[in-house]
Design a protein around this nucleic acid. Structure first.
Length: 678
DNA sequence: TTATTCACATTTTTT
DNA sequence: ATGTGAATAA
């Protein structure tokens, strides 16, 4: 049982008897263990599991925590324990209490759909002022940032459009463009209402507002929720706090977090909320865990050094309970290819000669984009891997095409869905579709749509579209069948539309989609919960997370993850990719100390994932660039610029010979030999 | 009005 | 390398 492995401080935290607690726990000090232990402890103390709600930021960590709680208890004690993300939790509440929140027949829209709505609203209007052009995407960003930080529009504009500049000129400009933006944002809100769309932020806001304004609502929920266990508390933003605050009267809060691992400020998170905890939460206590059980001291020395370089004070010096190990290694590479090759060879060597499994390896990258050459090399060398982070299964264009067909049956007012579904067909563009949609949304219900669809559109397309709509309508009770029927009727067109990579990539997603659909009781559930659900990729193949449905049987695999998706992960051997100047920190973050410091925390999170071996790769090209820049008198800010020699071991890439042969093309022929120009 | 093509830019990070 | 946006052809 997990509880028995707890140290004294952890045990004290797990068995906390007061009202509200914040556990400030550094990386690897047992944050997850603490939350798992707490849940198990409460259940053992007789708290019904369904009165405990665990909140996390990713579906994966929610699942993992729940699984670990279950594993630590005997029999099915924790069967009804709930673990979810903030968003899916709110969605569950909306589904469970439709009358309480006044939400039914809605469609949850993802950021892509948000953009579509905003584009509709904007039409061909463009906000332009003094060379600053604000596009629909930026309007969405402003809107979301404002709501997540619970700051006013001017502030959001200042942060996002003017990079947080505070001067009179900027203020004047904001005063001029603000009303224009305001008009569009309000139009967006109206449109959302008409389509019964709920965006991610709405999920939280609907629940929060109701609870704040309605004592009866609080009373109902207070029966349901006695304990809130909140993971990664340093990443909660003002909107999430706005949601949580009313629960202070209802439930006991048990929060764990680490200010040095706050990496979500782009979503409005402010790690200072952990410092404010005691003053904001009456009757609360704070406990600190600082003994690291994950890594060897050398890895922590490097991490400690990094965070110590920061002008901010995190009060953090992690001490390894496990003692000494090997020095982290620093490898200079000449290109992404070389980097990928080095890692692949190193992993293969570990696998074949050192008796390690693929699972023992974790590769961390700041952006999922940067991970592509690596995936190419892994496929080539047949190294099994999964990726965390990056494009979600449900966000892929071909999946959204089929989902759109189901969306319009579920909610015939869904103009975004109609637009996607109708323009999918040859010969129907935005204009025609717009005209059809105007008619379709004037009907009272989907049945009327089903009956009139063929006439509204007319022709062969009308027949096809109507046929699909009606089939889905008739099968709306069985999501899997509805998906199958829709897909079989759309397959030909899909194959044509995506002919470039249909066979290789996209076709195989549909069996997975059908399996996914099988998990949901209704179309509505699929499009709200399914959209919030993560799926991961296994060697390019989509796999449903946390389910037995995976199409592949390979269990032993390397994990490639973005740092953001890697919170809570750990591995024997960790590779941190591309720790180069202009990346750590990002070139586009120079100028904002806050953003630079956030990048520092990102690197800190990455470094502290490693248990025994830490390998850091960096690009020699950008290193030389920086030295040039320095010569020109600019400071580089590169985090490893002044890295003390004794903290790492510099390693020469031993595998450089493994580079692909076909690098030189015919016109690269070097004819400069045989002549001495001295 | 729609479909295709070409040039261009453009890269966090997540729900 | 990929996707978006604008220009052009059908």
């Amino acid at each position: 049982m997990e509880n028995h492995n707890l140290n004294e401080k952890q045990k004290k935290a797990v068995e906390f008897e007061g009202q509200h607690l914040l556990v400030l726990a550094g990386a690897g000090t047992g944050k997850t263990r603490c939350i798992v232990g707490r849940a198990a402890y409460l259940i053992e103390q007789g708290v019904p599991p369904d009165k405990i709600q665990i909140l996390t930021f990713t579906k994966r960590s929610a699942n993992e925590i729940v699984e670990r709680v279950k594993a630590s208890l005997s029999s099915n004690q924790a069967q009804s324990l709930n673990g979810s993300t903030f968003h899916s939790w709110c969605n569950q509440l909306l589904v469970r209490y439709p009358n309480l929140f006044g939400a039914s027949g809605y469609t949850v829209i993802d950021p892509d759909d948000q953009l579509s709505v905003m584009k509709m609203v904007c039409g061909d209007q463009i906000i332009e002022y003094k060379g600053i052009r604000i596009k629909p995407q930026q309007l969405i960003d402003i809107y979301s940032y404002g709501r997540n930080t619970r700051q006013n529009l001017s502030h959001a504009i200042r942060e996002l459009v003017y990079k947080g500049r505070v001067d009179d000129e900027t203020t004047d400009e904001i005063d001029i463009i603000r009303p224009k933006i305001e008009v569009l944002l309000k139009a967006y809100q109206t449109k959302k209402g008409e389509g019964r769309y709920i965006d991610y932020d709405d999920l939280l806001l609907i629940v929060a507002n109701r609870l704040r304004n309605d004592a009866q609502a609080r009373e109902i929920l207070s029966e349901q929720i006695k304990h809130l266990l909140i993971d990664e508390f340093q990443d909660t933003n003002p909107l999430q706090w706005f949601l949580l605050e009313p629960f202070l009267q209802i439930a006991k809060f048990y929060c764990v977090g680490d200010d040095a691992q706050s990496i979500y400020s782009f979503r409005g998170a402010d790690f200072k909320n952990v410092h404010l905890f005691k003053s904001r939460v009456p009757d609360s206590e704070v406990m600190i865990l600082d003994k690291n059980y994950r890594s060897t001291q050398e890895i922590l020395d490097l991490s400690n050094w990094l965070i110590d370089q920061s002008p901010l004070d995190y009060n953090k010096q992690l001490v390894a309970a496990r003692g000494q190990g090997q020095l982290p290694k620093l490898i200079n590479v000449g290109s992404q290819w070389e980097e990928a090759n080095f890692i692949a060879e190193h992993i293969l060597e570990n696998f074949t000669e050192k008796n390690k499994q693929f699972t023992d390896h974790l590769i961390l990258s700041k952006s999922s984009y940067y991970t592509k050459p690596l995936q190419a090399v892994f496929i080539q060398k047949k190294i099994p891997y999964v990726t965390y982070g990056g494009r979600k299964f449900m966000e892929a264009a071909h999946i959204k095409d089929v989902i759109a067909a189901l969306r319009v049956v579920n909610n015939h007012l869904d103009e975004i869905g109609w637009m996607r579904f109708l323009t999918f067909w040859d010969g129907i563009g935005e204009v025609k579709a717009g005209k059809y949609i105007a008619k379709l949304v004037s009907y009272d219900n989907p049945l009327q749509c089903a009956q009139n669809l063929a006439d509204v559109i007319g022709g062969v397309e009308g027949e096809t579209i109507s046929d699909i709509y009606n089939t889905i309508y008739l099968n709306s009770g069985n999501v899997k069948v509805a998906l199958q029927e829709a897909y079989s009727r759309m397959e030909k067109s899909l194959a044509f539309k995506y002919r470039k990579d249909w066979e290789e990539k996209r076709k195989s997603d549909f069996p997975v989609l059908e399996m996914l659909g099988d998990n949901y009781a209704s179309i509505g559930q699929l499009i709200s919960e399914g959209i919030l659900e993560n799926a991961k990729q296994l060697n390019g193949e989509p796999v449903l997370e946390g389910s037995q449905l995976s199409t592949s049987e390979i269990k032993d695999h390397v994990i490639i993850s973005t740092v953001h998706s890697a919170k809570g992960l750990e591995a024997e051997v960790c590779y941190v990719l591309n720790v180069s100047p202009k990346v750590y920190p990002s070139a586009w973050n120079l100028g904002s100390e806050e953003k630079i410091e956030e990048d520092r925390r990102v690197l800190y999170v990455a470094l502290t994932r490693a248990k025994n071996e830490l390998l850091i790769t960096r690009d020699t090209n950008s290193i030389s660039t920086v030295h040039k820049t320095n010569a020109a008198g600019f400071s580089s800010n590169y985090f490893l610029e002044e890295l003390p020699k004794h903290l790492t071991e510099q390693l020469v890439n031993p595998y450089t010979l493994g580079k692909p042969r076909d690098i030189s093309k015919p016109n690269d022929l070097d004819l400069s030999f045989g002549m001495d120009f001295s």
